[in-house]
Every structure is written in C-alpha cells, then in structure tokens.
Amino acid sequence: MLRDGLPELPSLFTPIPLREAGDAMARAIAMAPGHGAGTLAWVRAMSRIEAAVVLEPEQPLGAARLVLFAAISALADAVVALGPPEIPVSLRWPATLIVNGGEVGLARLASPPGAAADVPPDWLVVGVEARFVNAPGLEPGFAPTRSSLEAEGWDETDPAEITAAWARHLMAGLAEWERDGPQRVAERYLARLEHDPETEGARRALDTGTAELLWERDGARHRRAWV
C-alpha cells in the first residue's frame, strides 16, 4: 500500500511529496533558493526510495561537502535499523550503498553554480536513492553487482518508512557534527567504507576541509577527490 505521508518525521522538515515519476533532487534544487533549510522532497513510490533535503550550511563549501558522507551513512543506518541483522551493509567510495555485496543506492550533493570552495554556499541539497524492489520481470541474479532491499530480505518495511528513518538519522548525524565536530562524520563513514585495491591495508582518513579521502602507503601520502 502506498503511504500518503512520511511516518514520524521530525518537525524541522517540511515534506514535499512527489508522484512516482518525480525527481526529488531536481525539485529540491529548484526550491532551495526560496524555501530554505529543511525542505524535503520525496517520491511516493513502492519500488524505490528517493528523497532530497535543502540545507543552509555555515561552513565553507569545501568543508560542507562532508554532508554527502553524513547522508549516505544515515541511509546505511536507516537500512540497518529496519532490516535483517545478519545482512552486511557497507559503503563504496564515494557514496554508494552496498547490501550483501550488491549496489542498492547512492547519495548525491548539489550546490549553487559557481559557488567558491572557501565560502559558505547559500544552500546545499543532499539526496539519496535506493532500489526497494527490482524492476518487474527481472529474475534474481540478473545483474550480479546490483540488488534491491526487498531481494535481500527487507520485506517488513516500505520506502516511506526508510525515507523517514533516513531523515531522522541525517538530523542526528548533523547534530552530532555540530556538537562534536566533523571528525565524527568521518569516523562513522570510514567505519563502513569498503577497501579497494589502492587503499587495501592502508589506514584511511577524510580531509574534513576538502572532503577528500586520504591514505598512506610505502611512505607516500595519497588523496582522492570525488568532485
């Protein structure tokens, strides 16, 4: 059954429901200049999770980009809270959600065109997307690197409940960032981040001023940007 609204949504959010064919990221970006922080565009759909929220950060854009990692971590937290405890949930650089080894979702970030990295932007929009069910007619295993939440056992929840849980976890993560500093965002993200051939065995960190991935190998320091 398709829900009319989002359950248990914190009052600081202003939800804007969209039809199933809607684009939450595009709607939030269009509304960002005039509607302010907390505007939450979300798609009413049974097959997918799609939502985007407007933020008004106080940090320069370079540092504020960490919100991408807060958003994908919040989606992972929401999925873990509402799903089978034995199914592994991880992240792939920079912001892809991996469930039981398959790609399920991602997070995206948008800022005003031409915004300078060393100045707080007028707004940011951070959004998430995730497959809840596979497209009709597709058999399990049709794409070994991709999956959906329902296929992995998320059959006692629905996209609206996960969307609301994402919003709550994101709010908690942003409050923790404000209280304890950006390193807390980095720690939460890195705890779930998969290694790849370049970083395998290396100690990793995030540059909280630029949102770049850092690691050291054989005495050489490396960094990886995502923008």
Rank of each mutant, 00 (worst) to 15 (best):
P10A: 15
L12H: 13
L12I: 08
F13T: 05
I16H: 11
D23V: 10
M25R: 11
I29W: 05
I29A: 09
M31W: 13
A32L: 06
G34C: 09
G34Y: 12
R44H: 10
E50T: 06
E50Y: 09
L55F: 03
E58A: 04
L68P: 06
A70S: 11
L75M: 15
A81R: 06
L82V: 05
G83N: 05
G83V: 09
P85H: 03
I87Y: 06
I87W: 06
R92T: 00
T96M: 10
L97G: 02
I98M: 13
V99R: 01
V99A: 04
N100M: 05
L106Y: 12
A107E: 04
R108I: 07
L109Y: 10
L109I: 11
A110G: 01
P113C: 02
P113I: 04
V119N: 02
V126C: 12
G127T: 01
V128L: 07
A130R: 03
R131L: 11
A135E: 08
A135R: 12
E139A: 14
A143H: 14
P144S: 09
T157Y: 08
E161P: 03
A165P: 04
W166Q: 09
A167D: 03
A175W: 01
E176V: 14
G181E: 02
P182H: 00
Y189C: 05
R192L: 13
E200A: 15
G201V: 11
T210E: 13
R217C: 07
R223C: 04
R224H: 05
